[in-house]
Design a binder for these strands. Sequence first.
RNA 1: GGCCCCAUCGUCUAGCGGUUCAGGACAUCACUCUUUCAAGGUGAAGACAUGGGUUCGACUCCCAUUGGGGCCGCCA
Length: 516
Amino acid sequence: MSEVRVRIAPSPTGALHLGLVRTALYNWLFARQQGGRFILRIDDTDAQRNMSEVLQPILDGLRWLGLDWDEGPGVEGPNAPYFQSQRIDDHKAAVARLVASGHAYYDYATTEEIAAERLAAVANKEGVFRYSRRWMAETPADRVRFEAEGRKPVVRLKMPTTGALVIDDMVRGRVEFEWQREQDHVIQRADGTFLYHLASIVDDHAMGITHIIRAEEHLSNTPRQIFILQSLGVELPRFAHLPFVAEPGSRNKLSKRKIRVYMKNRDFSDLVARGNKVAATLNLETGPDTFSPVVVDFYRQTGFLPEAIVNYMALLGWALDDKTEHFTREDLVRAFSLERVNKSPASFDPGKLMAFEVRHMLALPVERRVELCLSFLKQAGLDAAPDKVAAIIAAAGDRIKVAGDVLDYVDFFTADDKLTRDAAAFAKEMGRPGTAVYLAKFRGVMASIVFEPAALEKSLQDFVAAEGIRGGQIIHVLRLAITGKTVGFGLYETMAILGRESVLARIDAALREAGI
RNA sequence: GGCCCCAUCGUCUAGCGGUUCAGGACAUCACUCUUUCAAGGUGAAGACAUGGGUUCGACUCCCAUUGGGGCCGCCA
Protein backbone atom coordinates (compact mmCIF):
# COMPACT_ATOMS: atom_id res chain seq x y z
CA MET A 1 0.00 0.00 0.00
CA SER A 2 1.58 3.21 -1.13
CA GLU A 3 1.54 6.42 0.87
CA VAL A 4 -1.62 8.49 0.80
CA ARG A 5 -1.14 11.76 -1.04
CA VAL A 6 -3.94 14.29 -1.30
CA ARG A 7 -4.06 17.85 -2.47
CA ILE A 8 -6.09 20.96 -2.76
CA ALA A 9 -5.57 23.03 -5.85
CA PRO A 10 -7.15 26.44 -5.42
CA SER A 11 -6.90 29.14 -7.98
CA PRO A 12 -5.67 32.31 -6.34
CA THR A 13 -8.66 34.57 -5.92
CA GLY A 14 -7.69 36.93 -3.15
CA ALA A 15 -9.72 35.36 -0.36
CA LEU A 16 -10.08 32.02 1.42
CA HIS A 17 -13.71 31.02 0.94
CA LEU A 18 -15.47 28.75 3.44
CA GLY A 19 -16.18 26.18 0.75
CA LEU A 20 -12.49 25.80 0.10
CA VAL A 21 -11.86 25.64 3.84
CA ARG A 22 -14.14 22.64 4.14
CA THR A 23 -12.51 20.87 1.20
CA ALA A 24 -9.06 21.69 2.55
CA LEU A 25 -10.02 20.48 6.01
CA TYR A 26 -11.31 17.11 4.81
CA ASN A 27 -8.20 16.59 2.71
CA TRP A 28 -5.99 17.57 5.60
CA LEU A 29 -7.81 15.33 8.07
CA PHE A 30 -7.63 12.38 5.70
CA ALA A 31 -3.91 12.91 5.12
CA ARG A 32 -3.09 13.31 8.81
CA GLN A 33 -5.11 10.31 9.78
CA GLN A 34 -3.62 8.07 7.11
CA GLY A 35 -0.12 9.26 7.82
CA GLY A 36 -0.05 10.65 4.31
CA ARG A 37 0.91 13.95 2.79
CA PHE A 38 -1.21 17.03 2.21
CA ILE A 39 -0.14 19.00 -0.81
CA LEU A 40 -1.01 22.53 -1.83
CA ARG A 41 -0.83 23.34 -5.49
CA ILE A 42 -1.87 26.65 -6.96
CA ASP A 43 -3.89 26.26 -10.12
CA ASP A 44 -3.01 29.65 -11.52
CA THR A 45 -2.72 30.68 -15.12
CA ASP A 46 -0.10 32.70 -16.88
CA ALA A 47 -2.56 35.50 -17.24
CA GLN A 48 -2.84 36.06 -13.51
CA ARG A 49 -1.28 39.25 -12.18
CA ASN A 50 -0.30 40.39 -8.69
CA MET A 51 0.26 36.82 -7.67
CA SER A 52 1.29 37.54 -4.10
CA GLU A 53 -1.68 39.79 -3.55
CA VAL A 54 -4.22 37.18 -4.60
CA LEU A 55 -2.39 34.21 -3.12
CA GLN A 56 -1.34 35.49 0.29
CA PRO A 57 -4.81 35.59 1.88
CA ILE A 58 -5.31 31.91 1.02
CA LEU A 59 -1.95 30.89 2.45
CA ASP A 60 -2.45 32.99 5.58
CA GLY A 61 -5.94 31.65 6.11
CA LEU A 62 -4.89 28.02 5.85
CA ARG A 63 -2.00 28.57 8.22
CA TRP A 64 -4.20 30.38 10.69
CA LEU A 65 -6.60 27.44 10.68
CA GLY A 66 -3.69 25.11 11.29
CA LEU A 67 -4.10 23.30 7.97
CA ASP A 68 -0.40 23.00 7.29
CA TRP A 69 0.72 21.54 4.00
CA ASP A 70 3.64 19.18 3.53
CA GLU A 71 4.44 20.29 0.04
CA GLY A 72 3.60 23.51 -1.72
CA PRO A 73 4.33 27.21 -1.74
CA GLY A 74 6.61 28.22 1.09
CA VAL A 75 7.67 24.68 1.99
CA GLU A 76 8.44 23.29 -1.47
CA GLY A 77 9.09 19.55 -1.76
CA PRO A 78 10.09 16.89 -4.26
CA ASN A 79 7.32 17.69 -6.73
CA ALA A 80 8.05 21.36 -7.28
CA PRO A 81 7.02 23.62 -8.83
CA TYR A 82 3.69 23.93 -7.06
CA PHE A 83 2.26 26.47 -9.45
CA GLN A 84 0.37 25.12 -12.41
CA SER A 85 1.59 27.87 -14.69
CA GLN A 86 5.14 26.58 -14.21
CA ARG A 87 4.39 23.02 -15.24
CA ILE A 88 3.55 23.53 -18.90
CA ASP A 89 6.34 21.24 -20.07
CA ASP A 90 4.44 18.37 -18.44
CA HIS A 91 1.21 19.46 -20.06
CA LYS A 92 2.87 19.72 -23.42
CA ALA A 93 4.38 16.24 -23.12
CA ALA A 94 1.06 14.75 -22.06
CA VAL A 95 -0.77 16.26 -25.01
CA ALA A 96 1.94 15.03 -27.38
CA ARG A 97 1.54 11.49 -26.06
CA LEU A 98 -2.22 11.69 -26.32
CA VAL A 99 -2.01 12.79 -29.94
CA ALA A 100 0.63 10.19 -30.77
CA SER A 101 -1.46 7.39 -29.33
CA GLY A 102 -4.58 8.53 -31.15
CA HIS A 103 -6.46 9.59 -28.01
CA ALA A 104 -6.45 13.21 -29.06
CA TYR A 105 -6.38 15.01 -32.36
CA TYR A 106 -5.67 18.34 -33.97
CA ASP A 107 -8.91 20.00 -34.85
CA TYR A 108 -9.10 22.85 -37.33
CA ALA A 109 -12.68 23.93 -36.87
CA THR A 110 -13.20 27.61 -36.19
CA THR A 111 -15.21 28.66 -33.15
CA GLU A 112 -17.96 29.78 -35.54
CA GLU A 113 -18.14 26.38 -37.15
CA ILE A 114 -18.39 24.69 -33.79
CA ALA A 115 -21.03 27.12 -32.66
CA ALA A 116 -23.05 26.40 -35.78
CA GLU A 117 -22.91 22.65 -35.13
CA ARG A 118 -23.93 23.18 -31.56
CA LEU A 119 -26.86 25.31 -32.62
CA ALA A 120 -27.99 22.69 -35.09
CA ALA A 121 -27.81 20.03 -32.42
CA VAL A 122 -30.03 22.07 -30.14
CA ALA A 123 -32.48 22.71 -32.97
CA ASN A 124 -32.70 18.98 -33.68
CA LYS A 125 -33.31 18.33 -30.00
CA GLU A 126 -30.51 15.86 -30.01
CA GLY A 127 -29.86 16.37 -26.35
CA VAL A 128 -26.13 16.04 -26.42
CA PHE A 129 -23.98 17.98 -28.76
CA ARG A 130 -21.32 15.84 -30.38
CA TYR A 131 -18.80 17.39 -32.66
CA SER A 132 -18.81 15.90 -36.17
CA ARG A 133 -14.98 15.78 -36.28
CA ARG A 134 -15.26 17.32 -39.71
CA TRP A 135 -12.08 19.33 -39.31
CA MET A 136 -10.19 16.63 -37.48
CA ALA A 137 -6.72 16.14 -38.94
CA GLU A 138 -6.11 12.43 -39.30
CA THR A 139 -2.86 12.62 -41.19
CA PRO A 140 0.03 15.08 -41.49
CA ALA A 141 -1.29 15.80 -44.96
CA ASP A 142 -4.61 16.93 -43.46
CA ARG A 143 -2.75 19.33 -41.24
CA VAL A 144 -0.91 20.83 -44.16
CA ARG A 145 -4.11 21.17 -46.13
CA PHE A 146 -6.06 22.82 -43.28
CA GLU A 147 -3.22 25.13 -42.49
CA ALA A 148 -3.03 26.17 -46.10
CA GLU A 149 -6.56 27.42 -45.58
CA GLY A 150 -5.19 29.61 -42.81
CA ARG A 151 -6.77 27.57 -40.00
CA LYS A 152 -5.27 27.22 -36.54
CA PRO A 153 -5.67 23.97 -34.62
CA VAL A 154 -6.81 23.19 -31.11
CA VAL A 155 -6.25 19.77 -29.63
CA ARG A 156 -9.32 17.77 -28.70
CA LEU A 157 -9.78 14.56 -26.81
CA LYS A 158 -11.03 11.73 -29.01
CA MET A 159 -13.59 10.46 -26.59
CA PRO A 160 -14.98 6.91 -26.75
CA THR A 161 -18.42 6.59 -28.28
CA THR A 162 -19.56 3.37 -26.73
CA GLY A 163 -19.65 1.74 -23.37
CA ALA A 164 -19.81 3.30 -19.95
CA LEU A 165 -17.50 4.45 -17.21
CA VAL A 166 -18.14 3.35 -13.67
CA ILE A 167 -16.62 5.38 -10.89
CA ASP A 168 -16.45 3.99 -7.39
CA ASP A 169 -16.64 7.27 -5.54
CA MET A 170 -15.64 7.15 -1.89
CA VAL A 171 -18.57 9.22 -0.74
CA ARG A 172 -21.12 8.67 -3.47
CA GLY A 173 -20.56 5.05 -4.25
CA ARG A 174 -21.09 3.75 -7.76
CA VAL A 175 -21.65 6.42 -10.39
CA GLU A 176 -22.05 5.58 -14.04
CA PHE A 177 -21.51 7.69 -17.16
CA GLU A 178 -22.12 6.71 -20.76
CA TRP A 179 -19.20 7.64 -22.95
CA GLN A 180 -21.46 8.62 -25.81
CA ARG A 181 -22.70 11.56 -23.75
CA GLU A 182 -19.20 12.93 -23.48
CA GLN A 183 -17.80 15.47 -25.85
CA ASP A 184 -14.48 15.85 -27.57
CA HIS A 185 -13.24 18.38 -25.06
CA VAL A 186 -10.55 20.84 -26.03
CA ILE A 187 -7.36 20.31 -24.04
CA GLN A 188 -5.08 22.76 -25.81
CA ARG A 189 -6.08 26.10 -27.25
CA ALA A 190 -5.14 27.50 -30.61
CA ASP A 191 -2.62 29.75 -28.90
CA GLY A 192 -0.88 26.71 -27.45
CA THR A 193 -2.02 27.12 -23.84
CA PHE A 194 -3.63 24.24 -21.97
CA LEU A 195 -7.02 23.88 -20.39
CA TYR A 196 -7.66 23.31 -16.74
CA HIS A 197 -8.99 19.78 -17.03
CA LEU A 198 -5.87 18.62 -18.80
CA ALA A 199 -3.42 20.53 -16.65
CA SER A 200 -5.05 19.65 -13.37
CA ILE A 201 -5.19 15.89 -13.86
CA VAL A 202 -1.72 15.76 -15.40
CA ASP A 203 -0.35 17.64 -12.40
CA ASP A 204 -2.21 15.38 -10.00
CA HIS A 205 -0.62 12.37 -11.61
CA ALA A 206 2.83 13.94 -11.72
CA MET A 207 2.54 14.69 -8.01
CA GLY A 208 1.51 11.15 -7.20
CA ILE A 209 -1.90 12.10 -5.87
CA THR A 210 -3.64 8.95 -4.66
CA HIS A 211 -7.01 10.41 -3.61
CA ILE A 212 -8.74 13.31 -5.26
CA ILE A 213 -11.08 14.73 -2.64
CA ARG A 214 -12.91 17.71 -4.05
CA ALA A 215 -16.26 19.43 -4.34
CA GLU A 216 -19.22 17.80 -6.03
CA GLU A 217 -19.18 20.27 -8.89
CA HIS A 218 -16.31 18.28 -10.38
CA LEU A 219 -18.16 14.98 -10.49
CA SER A 220 -19.48 15.57 -14.01
CA ASN A 221 -15.99 16.49 -15.16
CA THR A 222 -14.44 13.31 -13.91
CA PRO A 223 -15.00 11.14 -17.01
CA ARG A 224 -12.83 13.30 -19.25
CA GLN A 225 -10.09 13.33 -16.63
CA ILE A 226 -10.23 9.59 -16.26
CA PHE A 227 -10.12 9.26 -20.02
CA ILE A 228 -6.91 11.27 -20.08
CA LEU A 229 -5.35 9.11 -17.40
CA GLN A 230 -6.44 5.88 -19.04
CA SER A 231 -5.12 7.06 -22.38
CA LEU A 232 -1.81 7.83 -20.79
CA GLY A 233 -1.80 4.27 -19.48
CA VAL A 234 -1.46 5.38 -15.93
CA GLU A 235 -2.92 4.21 -12.62
CA LEU A 236 -6.09 5.98 -11.51
CA PRO A 237 -6.45 7.75 -8.18
CA ARG A 238 -9.51 7.23 -6.00
CA PHE A 239 -12.15 9.94 -6.12
CA ALA A 240 -14.27 11.39 -3.34
CA HIS A 241 -16.77 14.07 -4.26
CA LEU A 242 -17.88 16.20 -1.36
CA PRO A 243 -21.28 17.90 -1.14
CA PHE A 244 -21.47 21.66 -1.33
CA VAL A 245 -21.39 24.04 1.55
CA ALA A 246 -24.73 25.74 0.99
CA GLU A 247 -26.17 29.13 1.89
CA PRO A 248 -27.81 29.71 5.24
CA GLY A 249 -31.23 28.09 5.05
CA SER A 250 -30.99 26.91 1.46
CA ARG A 251 -29.42 24.29 -0.78
CA ASN A 252 -27.69 26.75 -3.07
CA LYS A 253 -23.96 26.82 -3.14
CA LEU A 254 -22.53 29.39 -0.75
CA SER A 255 -21.28 32.36 -2.70
CA LYS A 256 -19.47 35.47 -1.70
CA ARG A 257 -21.49 37.51 -4.12
CA LYS A 258 -24.76 37.07 -2.30
CA ILE A 259 -23.99 38.62 1.06
CA ARG A 260 -26.95 40.97 0.77
CA VAL A 261 -29.33 38.04 0.45
CA TYR A 262 -27.76 36.25 3.41
CA MET A 263 -28.20 39.36 5.54
CA LYS A 264 -31.88 38.46 5.72
CA ASN A 265 -30.81 35.57 7.92
CA ARG A 266 -30.74 36.92 11.45
CA ASP A 267 -27.78 34.91 12.68
CA PHE A 268 -25.86 35.97 9.63
CA SER A 269 -26.56 39.65 10.10
CA ASP A 270 -25.71 39.34 13.80
CA LEU A 271 -22.37 37.94 12.78
CA VAL A 272 -21.75 40.81 10.38
CA ALA A 273 -22.80 43.32 13.02
CA ARG A 274 -20.37 41.82 15.52
CA GLY A 275 -17.57 42.01 12.97
CA ASN A 276 -18.43 45.55 11.98
CA LYS A 277 -18.33 46.65 15.60
CA VAL A 278 -14.80 45.33 15.95
CA ALA A 279 -13.84 46.76 12.59
CA ALA A 280 -15.18 50.19 13.53
CA THR A 281 -13.20 50.29 16.77
CA LEU A 282 -10.03 49.13 15.08
CA ASN A 283 -10.48 50.97 11.79
CA LEU A 284 -10.26 47.78 9.75
CA GLU A 285 -10.91 47.58 6.04
CA THR A 286 -14.40 46.21 5.55
CA GLY A 287 -14.62 45.60 1.82
CA PRO A 288 -17.30 43.03 0.98
CA ASP A 289 -14.77 40.74 -0.71
CA THR A 290 -12.55 40.31 2.31
CA PHE A 291 -14.56 41.28 5.37
CA SER A 292 -17.45 38.90 5.01
CA PRO A 293 -18.51 35.81 6.97
CA VAL A 294 -18.07 33.80 3.79
CA VAL A 295 -14.35 34.46 3.96
CA VAL A 296 -11.97 33.22 6.63
CA ASP A 297 -10.17 36.48 7.18
CA PHE A 298 -13.35 37.93 8.67
CA TYR A 299 -13.13 35.46 11.53
CA ARG A 300 -9.45 36.00 12.14
CA GLN A 301 -9.92 39.75 12.29
CA THR A 302 -12.87 39.64 14.66
CA GLY A 303 -11.14 37.28 17.06
CA PHE A 304 -12.68 33.90 16.40
CA LEU A 305 -10.82 30.80 17.50
CA PRO A 306 -9.50 28.77 14.57
CA GLU A 307 -10.23 25.56 16.46
CA ALA A 308 -13.90 26.54 16.72
CA ILE A 309 -14.12 27.08 12.98
CA VAL A 310 -12.35 23.81 12.30
CA ASN A 311 -14.70 21.99 14.66
CA TYR A 312 -17.79 23.52 13.10
CA MET A 313 -16.68 23.08 9.50
CA ALA A 314 -15.78 19.45 10.14
CA LEU A 315 -19.36 18.82 11.19
CA LEU A 316 -20.74 20.49 8.07
CA GLY A 317 -21.09 17.31 6.08
CA TRP A 318 -19.65 14.77 8.46
CA ALA A 319 -20.67 13.30 11.81
CA LEU A 320 -19.11 10.66 13.98
CA ASP A 321 -22.27 9.55 15.75
CA ASP A 322 -25.48 10.86 17.23
CA LYS A 323 -23.97 12.88 20.08
CA THR A 324 -20.32 13.81 19.79
CA GLU A 325 -19.98 17.42 18.72
CA HIS A 326 -17.05 18.94 20.52
CA PHE A 327 -13.83 17.97 18.78
CA THR A 328 -10.31 19.19 19.15
CA ARG A 329 -8.13 19.04 16.09
CA GLU A 330 -6.56 15.81 17.40
CA ASP A 331 -9.97 14.27 18.04
CA LEU A 332 -10.92 14.98 14.47
CA VAL A 333 -7.78 13.45 13.03
CA ARG A 334 -8.54 10.33 15.00
CA ALA A 335 -12.26 10.11 14.27
CA PHE A 336 -12.59 11.36 10.72
CA SER A 337 -13.50 9.07 7.86
CA LEU A 338 -14.65 9.67 4.30
CA GLU A 339 -17.16 6.84 4.67
CA ARG A 340 -19.15 8.96 7.08
CA VAL A 341 -19.21 12.05 4.90
CA ASN A 342 -22.76 12.91 3.90
CA LYS A 343 -23.97 13.04 0.33
CA SER A 344 -26.34 15.97 0.60
CA PRO A 345 -25.35 19.63 0.78
CA ALA A 346 -25.06 21.18 4.23
CA SER A 347 -26.08 24.74 4.75
CA PHE A 348 -23.86 27.07 6.67
CA ASP A 349 -25.48 28.07 9.97
CA PRO A 350 -23.86 31.14 11.51
CA GLY A 351 -25.75 30.67 14.77
CA LYS A 352 -24.36 27.22 15.28
CA LEU A 353 -20.86 28.36 14.39
CA MET A 354 -21.23 30.91 17.19
CA ALA A 355 -22.25 28.19 19.62
CA PHE A 356 -19.06 26.28 18.82
CA GLU A 357 -17.05 29.46 19.20
CA VAL A 358 -18.45 30.05 22.68
CA ARG A 359 -17.81 26.48 23.71
CA HIS A 360 -14.21 26.58 22.59
CA MET A 361 -13.65 30.00 24.09
CA LEU A 362 -14.94 28.85 27.48
CA ALA A 363 -12.77 25.74 27.28
CA LEU A 364 -9.64 27.87 26.98
CA PRO A 365 -7.43 28.53 30.02
CA VAL A 366 -7.90 32.08 31.32
CA GLU A 367 -4.32 33.09 30.51
CA ARG A 368 -4.90 32.19 26.91
CA ARG A 369 -8.08 34.23 26.75
CA VAL A 370 -6.33 37.18 28.37
CA GLU A 371 -3.63 36.94 25.76
CA LEU A 372 -6.13 36.96 22.91
CA CYS A 373 -8.14 39.84 24.33
CA LEU A 374 -5.03 41.80 25.14
CA SER A 375 -3.98 41.77 21.53
CA PHE A 376 -7.29 43.34 20.56
CA LEU A 377 -7.04 45.98 23.26
CA LYS A 378 -3.56 46.75 22.05
CA GLN A 379 -4.81 47.12 18.50
CA ALA A 380 -7.28 49.63 19.89
CA GLY A 381 -4.36 51.57 21.33
CA LEU A 382 -4.98 50.62 24.95
CA ASP A 383 -2.16 49.68 27.26
CA ALA A 384 -4.26 47.43 29.47
CA ALA A 385 -2.97 45.65 32.56
CA PRO A 386 -3.26 41.85 32.24
CA ASP A 387 -4.72 41.56 35.77
CA LYS A 388 -7.52 43.89 34.96
CA VAL A 389 -8.22 42.13 31.68
CA ALA A 390 -8.31 38.81 33.50
CA ALA A 391 -10.82 40.23 35.96
CA ILE A 392 -12.96 41.54 33.13
CA ILE A 393 -12.90 38.19 31.38
CA ALA A 394 -13.88 36.40 34.57
CA ALA A 395 -16.78 38.76 35.16
CA ALA A 396 -17.86 38.71 31.53
CA GLY A 397 -18.33 34.95 31.37
CA ASP A 398 -19.61 34.01 27.94
CA ARG A 399 -20.41 37.60 27.03
CA ILE A 400 -17.00 37.64 25.38
CA LYS A 401 -17.73 35.19 22.60
CA VAL A 402 -14.97 36.25 20.25
CA ALA A 403 -11.80 37.96 21.40
CA GLY A 404 -12.85 41.16 19.65
CA ASP A 405 -15.85 41.38 21.98
CA VAL A 406 -13.51 42.60 24.70
CA LEU A 407 -13.71 45.93 22.92
CA ASP A 408 -17.24 46.24 24.32
CA TYR A 409 -15.52 46.92 27.63
CA VAL A 410 -13.06 49.64 26.67
CA ASP A 411 -14.95 51.86 29.12
CA PHE A 412 -13.04 50.17 31.89
CA PHE A 413 -9.94 51.83 30.53
CA THR A 414 -11.15 55.27 29.61
CA ALA A 415 -10.46 58.26 31.83
CA ASP A 416 -13.05 58.66 34.60
CA ASP A 417 -14.15 62.08 33.45
CA LYS A 418 -14.33 61.07 29.79
CA LEU A 419 -17.00 58.43 30.21
CA THR A 420 -20.01 58.73 27.87
CA ARG A 421 -23.33 57.86 29.42
CA ASP A 422 -26.57 56.64 27.96
CA ALA A 423 -28.11 60.08 28.40
CA ALA A 424 -31.77 59.09 28.22
CA ALA A 425 -31.41 56.24 30.70
CA PHE A 426 -29.31 58.32 33.05
CA ALA A 427 -31.79 61.18 32.98
CA LYS A 428 -34.63 58.80 33.63
CA GLU A 429 -32.95 57.27 36.69
CA MET A 430 -31.85 60.60 38.08
CA GLY A 431 -35.39 61.86 37.56
CA ARG A 432 -36.72 59.55 40.25
CA PRO A 433 -37.24 61.34 43.55
CA GLY A 434 -34.38 60.90 45.99
CA THR A 435 -32.07 59.12 43.59
CA ALA A 436 -29.40 61.79 43.54
CA VAL A 437 -29.41 61.91 47.31
CA TYR A 438 -29.03 58.15 47.67
CA LEU A 439 -26.24 58.14 45.13
CA ALA A 440 -24.36 60.87 46.93
CA LYS A 441 -24.94 59.20 50.29
CA PHE A 442 -23.75 55.82 49.12
CA ARG A 443 -20.70 57.47 47.61
CA GLY A 444 -19.86 58.48 51.17
CA VAL A 445 -20.23 54.90 52.38
CA MET A 446 -17.95 53.60 49.66
CA ALA A 447 -15.17 55.95 50.56
CA SER A 448 -14.33 53.72 53.47
CA ILE A 449 -15.13 50.12 52.58
CA VAL A 450 -13.12 47.27 51.12
CA PHE A 451 -13.48 47.08 47.33
CA GLU A 452 -14.27 43.44 46.94
CA PRO A 453 -17.50 42.03 45.51
CA ALA A 454 -18.71 40.43 48.74
CA ALA A 455 -17.99 43.46 50.91
CA LEU A 456 -19.53 45.77 48.35
CA GLU A 457 -22.67 43.70 48.19
CA LYS A 458 -23.01 43.67 51.96
CA SER A 459 -22.56 47.38 52.34
CA LEU A 460 -25.06 48.09 49.61
CA GLN A 461 -27.61 45.81 51.26
CA ASP A 462 -27.01 47.44 54.61
CA PHE A 463 -27.42 50.83 53.00
CA VAL A 464 -30.68 49.81 51.35
CA ALA A 465 -32.00 48.46 54.65
CA ALA A 466 -31.00 51.53 56.57
CA GLU A 467 -32.62 53.86 54.07
CA GLY A 468 -35.70 51.72 53.75
CA ILE A 469 -35.51 51.60 49.96
CA ARG A 470 -35.46 48.82 47.39
CA GLY A 471 -32.18 47.74 45.82
CA GLY A 472 -33.26 48.83 42.40
CA GLN A 473 -33.45 52.44 43.52
CA ILE A 474 -29.72 52.68 43.94
CA ILE A 475 -28.36 49.85 41.81
CA HIS A 476 -29.47 51.11 38.41
CA VAL A 477 -28.27 54.64 38.88
CA LEU A 478 -25.01 53.38 40.27
CA ARG A 479 -24.41 51.25 37.18
CA LEU A 480 -25.20 54.18 34.93
CA ALA A 481 -22.92 56.41 36.92
CA ILE A 482 -19.89 54.16 36.78
CA THR A 483 -20.28 52.45 33.39
CA GLY A 484 -22.58 54.77 31.50
CA LYS A 485 -24.68 51.82 30.44
CA THR A 486 -27.84 50.06 31.56
CA VAL A 487 -26.43 46.65 30.82
CA GLY A 488 -23.26 44.94 31.86
CA PHE A 489 -22.06 42.23 34.15
CA GLY A 490 -22.49 41.97 37.92
CA LEU A 491 -22.47 45.38 39.56
CA TYR A 492 -20.21 44.37 42.47
CA GLU A 493 -17.69 42.76 40.14
CA THR A 494 -17.82 45.87 38.00
CA MET A 495 -17.04 48.10 40.97
CA ALA A 496 -14.28 45.83 42.19
CA ILE A 497 -12.62 45.85 38.79
CA LEU A 498 -12.78 49.61 38.50
CA GLY A 499 -11.46 50.12 42.01
CA ARG A 500 -12.39 52.71 44.59
CA GLU A 501 -10.66 55.63 42.97
CA SER A 502 -12.38 55.24 39.63
CA VAL A 503 -15.77 54.47 41.10
CA LEU A 504 -15.73 57.57 43.30
CA ALA A 505 -14.45 59.75 40.49
CA ARG A 506 -17.10 58.47 38.12
CA ILE A 507 -19.89 59.04 40.63
CA ASP A 508 -18.62 62.58 41.17
CA ALA A 509 -18.61 63.12 37.42
CA ALA A 510 -22.13 61.73 37.19
CA LEU A 511 -23.41 64.00 39.94
CA ARG A 512 -21.78 66.93 38.23
CA GLU A 513 -23.35 65.89 34.93
CA ALA A 514 -26.73 65.83 36.63
CA GLY A 515 -26.08 69.30 37.92
CA ILE A 516 -25.79 68.42 41.58
C1' G B 1 -32.83 20.51 -23.37
C1' G B 2 -29.26 16.10 -22.14
C1' C B 3 -26.54 13.78 -18.31
C1' C B 4 -25.05 13.37 -13.13
C1' C B 5 -25.92 14.05 -7.89
C1' C B 6 -29.11 14.85 -3.67
C1' A B 7 -33.88 14.46 -0.36
C1' U B 8 -35.09 12.82 8.29
C1' C B 9 -37.35 18.71 12.85
C1' G B 10 -36.05 25.99 10.60
C1' U B 11 -30.52 24.28 10.47
C1' C B 12 -26.44 20.41 11.30
C1' U B 13 -27.32 15.43 11.96
C1' A B 14 -28.16 9.89 14.30
C1' G B 15 -30.68 5.95 11.98
C1' C B 16 -27.22 1.14 7.80
C1' G B 17 -35.37 -3.96 7.68
C1' G B 18 -38.07 -5.21 13.47
C1' U B 19 -35.42 -3.10 20.53
C1' U B 20 -37.60 4.27 17.56
C1' C B 21 -45.75 6.63 17.82
C1' A B 22 -37.63 8.52 15.06
C1' G B 23 -32.46 10.21 19.22
C1' G B 24 -28.86 14.51 19.90
C1' A B 25 -27.09 19.59 18.92
C1' C B 26 -27.99 24.86 17.37
C1' A B 27 -31.96 28.14 16.88
C1' U B 28 -37.20 29.15 18.69
C1' C B 29 -41.06 29.54 22.61
C1' A B 30 -42.77 29.28 27.82
C1' C B 31 -41.71 29.22 32.85
C1' U B 32 -37.94 29.89 36.58
C1' C B 33 -33.65 32.32 38.84
C1' U B 34 -32.15 37.49 39.07
C1' U B 35 -29.40 44.31 40.51
C1' U B 36 -29.40 45.00 34.30
C1' C B 37 -27.77 42.03 30.04
C1' A B 38 -26.11 37.30 29.27
C1' A B 39 -25.67 32.60 31.48
C1' G B 40 -28.02 28.71 34.41
C1' G B 41 -32.37 25.45 35.65
C1' U B 42 -37.17 23.21 34.01
C1' G B 43 -40.31 22.27 30.15
C1' A B 44 -42.69 22.79 25.15
C1' A B 45 -43.19 22.86 20.05
C1' G B 46 -40.79 20.80 15.75
C1' A B 47 -38.98 15.99 10.58
C1' C B 48 -38.85 10.64 7.67
C1' A B 49 -41.22 15.15 0.08
C1' U B 50 -45.28 12.12 -2.63
C1' G B 51 -46.99 7.60 -4.92
C1' G B 52 -46.19 2.70 -6.06
C1' G B 53 -43.78 -1.81 -5.17
C1' U B 54 -40.45 -5.81 -2.38
C1' U B 55 -41.18 -7.95 2.60
C1' C B 56 -44.55 -11.10 7.88
C1' G B 57 -42.56 -6.01 8.69
C1' A B 58 -39.79 -0.14 5.74
C1' C B 59 -37.12 6.20 7.62
C1' U B 60 -34.10 2.21 6.10
C1' C B 61 -34.22 -1.84 -0.29
C1' C B 62 -36.28 -0.97 -5.64
C1' C B 63 -39.05 2.15 -9.21
C1' A B 64 -41.59 6.52 -10.58
C1' U B 65 -43.05 11.52 -9.55
C1' U B 66 -41.97 16.11 -7.34
C1' G B 67 -38.44 19.42 -5.53
C1' G B 68 -33.35 21.19 -5.07
C1' G B 69 -28.34 21.36 -6.86
C1' G B 70 -24.32 20.55 -10.39
C1' C B 71 -21.99 19.78 -15.23
C1' C B 72 -22.53 20.22 -20.34
C1' G B 73 -16.72 26.64 -22.73
C1' C B 74 -10.64 27.53 -26.98
C1' C B 75 -13.27 29.52 -17.63
C1' A B 76 -10.72 27.72 -13.26
